[in-house]
Amino acid sequence: MPIDAAKALAAEPRTGEIGWAQKDVLLYHLGIGAGVPATDPGELRYTLESRLHVLPSFATVAGSGAPGVISGLSLPGIEVELAKVLHGGQHLVVHRPIPAEGTATTTNRLAAVYDKGKAAVLVLRTEAADADGPLWTNDAQIFVRGEGGWGGDRGPSARLEPPTGEPERTVERPVREDQALLYRLSGDWNPLHADPEFAEVAGFERPILHGLCTYGITLKAVVDILLDGDPTRVRSYDTRFAGVVYPGETLRIRMWRQDGTAVRVAVSSVERDDAPVLADTVVHHS
């Protein structure tokens, strides 16, 4: 079996130093569609360095980009084909607001390996801290198709009961034809998002948008609409990637407030009859 779960889980954590500048934050924000309209004061907090606020989902690309997908495949005990890999979900905890520029020490380790029968799931945990203490904790769930079935632990279910009643807000966000090409400049170079031939080998009709790009687009919508445009109110953000997005499509984002401290979200593709894109999505906030 290409995945040796015991060996992978026993591997020593990897530590490293990362750094980011305002330019990296600005590029990330543009990659998730910020800046439209370009002179809107609400957009300028994402696109103008003198007013810059950092959307917490920037943590998924800070310093290195997409820590859960590519680097997770280089851990001891893991030898899989990139074309079999899909990003299954993301869990982000923000310990305090992310500065617009800074450095941090990151610790990466495999937190779990689950056997889902037809696939294996790798949970890669990345913790970041600077001189003032912890900044964020990221768990990326990576599905490796065809690598399950060895009788291992299936792991917990990430499925939540769907929200009830009509959503408080529903918005639509267009995805540019070149959105994936722009987003990948923040560090996720997986050819699945740019190379038509690679996408076809992986089973898709054409390159798909990064799941973490949809993740960022969705968090920005929640912050802008229900959190008074204040990214520092976000405490954690969870999602399951339920389906793909093709560049050029439109995202329909539905939001429900819960208990004054959380927002449930569902995201679908308008052009494909509301095909689910993000599910079991929760933003916890102050």
Rank of each mutant, 00 (worst) to 15 (best):
I3H: 06
A8E: 13
L9S: 13
A10E: 15
T15N: 13
E17S: 07
A21P: 04
L26T: 04
L27G: 09
G33D: 08
G33M: 05
G33T: 05
V36C: 06
V36Q: 15
D40Q: 12
E43G: 00
Y46R: 13
R51M: 02
H53S: 06
H53Q: 09
P56H: 07
S57P: 03
T60W: 05
G63S: 10
P67W: 10
P67R: 15
S74H: 13
S74N: 12
P76K: 02
E79P: 01
K84R: 15
H87E: 13
G88H: 06
G88N: 09
G88I: 07
Q90R: 04
L92G: 12
V93D: 15
H95M: 07
R96C: 11
T103G: 14
T105I: 13
T107G: 07
T107M: 11
T107W: 09
L110W: 14
A112V: 07
K116H: 11
A119N: 14
A120S: 08
A120D: 07
A120E: 05
V121H: 03
L122C: 09
V123K: 14
A128S: 15
A129G: 04
D130Q: 04
G133T: 05
L135W: 14
N138R: 14
R145V: 00
G149K: 04
G155W: 12
P156E: 15
S157P: 00
A158I: 10
R159P: 00
L160G: 08
P162Y: 01
P163M: 10
T164D: 15
R173H: 09
D178Q: 13
A180F: 04
L181D: 15
S186P: 03
S186C: 11
G187H: 13
P191K: 08
A194V: 10
P196W: 02
F198I: 07
V201W: 01
E205T: 06
E205W: 03
T214F: 04
Y215L: 03
A221N: 11
A221M: 08
R233L: 03
R235W: 00
S236H: 11
Y237F: 14
V245A: 10
G248R: 09
E249W: 01
T250A: 03
I253F: 00
M255G: 10
W256P: 00
W256E: 03
W256A: 00
D259V: 00
T261S: 13
A262M: 06
A262V: 05
V263E: 07
A266D: 09
A266F: 00
V277Q: 02
V277K: 03
L278C: 05
V282P: 06
H285L: 00
S286A: 15
